[in-house]
């Protein structure tokens, strides 16, 4: 609903009031979001002397370099692989955790307690969380030792740590909460009478899930998906630490560029990635009308 201006105030006054409403957001977004993006955008068109010096101007050289590089495609494929796998696992786990909390935990206090339990990993820093995987997944880690002791394997599994598998595990561990929260939120707003009405009509548990719960959690799923996809695609830290340098992502590549003072190519890569992400997010928003679902 748009607030209609009161009839006795002039249009310009209504305009002013409108601007005042959005000013706090503008004050935050312009210096901390719009300005940096514009700087990066500008830098991507600058020329460089190869030692960090930038020559203001307009050249597409950086873009041509990035797009011509075979590495770019490989990195995007790798990143998309991480993203899709992480998305699938976080979605499945997040959906069922939220489902359990909303529909199976009768006691609301217990539900809130369990919900907080999901946030426990976030009580510590990202680095500690990453390092904590080493005693579990490492060559002499718990899992390898257990498997060796049981005689299932005779050589420690190298694939557990410093591998793509480890990267996916770390991502899923870190990002499932971003699925749980929005899905929990949209599920919690499903009227319990609807479930009863469905049972009354003869729906099985699976029918209820398929025909009622999933469609009505769509906005939560979409929001969670946006969080997970944008975080994974914009990440280099987890890949770097957990893969031990064995895997790379789009961002880790332009992190390297920055390290060797290739600012314009780094900026061009960043702009490209932003465009790709914007495309993905708008695709998600096209399939699910989040605004309409949220105001429902």
């Amino acid at each position: 609903m748009q607030p209609s201006p009161s009839p006795n105030s002039s249009p310009s006054r209504a305009n002013l009031a409108g601007w005042l409403y959005v000013s706090p957001l503008v004050l935050v977004l312009v210096p901390f979001f719009v300005a940096p993006i514009l700087v990066v955008l500008a830098a991507s068109f600058f020329a460089t002397d190869g030692f960090g010096g930038l020559t203001p101007g307009f050249t597409l050289a950086s873009y041509i370099e990035v797009l011509h590089s075979a590495l770019t495609l490989k990195l995007y494929l790798a990143t998309i692989k991480f993203t899709v796998l992480t998305w699938i696992f976080t979605l499945i786990i997040g959906f069922f955790v939220a489902y359990f909390l909303v529909f199976h935990v009768r006691n609301q206090l217990l539900a809130i307690g369990l919900f907080l339990l999901c946030t426990v990993p976030f009580w510590t820093s990202n680095i500690i969380r990453m390092i904590s995987w080493i005693p579990l997944l490492g060559k002499e880690g718990l899992i390898n030792q257990a498997l060796l002791a049981m005689g299932v394997i005779h050589q420690p599994l190298e694939v557990l740590l410093f591998s793509d598998l480890a990267v996916i595990i770390a991502y899923v561990h870190q990002l499932t909460i971003f699925m749980i929260v929005p899905i929990f939120n949209s599920m919690a707003r499903i009227d319990k009478n609807l479930i009863e009405a469905a049972i009354d009509a003869g729906a099985s548990r699976f029918d209820i899930m398929r025909l009622i719960v999933v469609p009505m959690s769509k906005s939560g799923i979409a929001l969670g998906t946006i969080f997970v996809v944008s975080i994974v695609m914009g990440d280099f830290f987890v890949v770097k630490v957990i893969s031990g340098g064995g895997s790379a992502s789009v961002v880790s590549a332009f992190y390297e560029d920055v390290g060797v003072l290739q600012y314009p190519t780094a900026a061009a890569s960043a702009v490209l990635l932003t465009l790709v992400l914007v495309a993905i997010v708008s695709l998600i928003l096209r399939t699910v009308d989040i605004r309409q679902e949220i105001t429902r």
Binding site: D191, E196, A198, I199, G202, L211, I212
Partner: peptide, 17 residues
């Protein structure tokens, strides 16, 4: 179950999907 009873219920706030 309600289906086996062959009853149907109309809910207070209708509970339409």
């Amino acid at each position: 179950a309600p289906v086996q009873r062959r009853t149907a219920m109309m809910f207070q706030s209708y509970a339409l999907f």
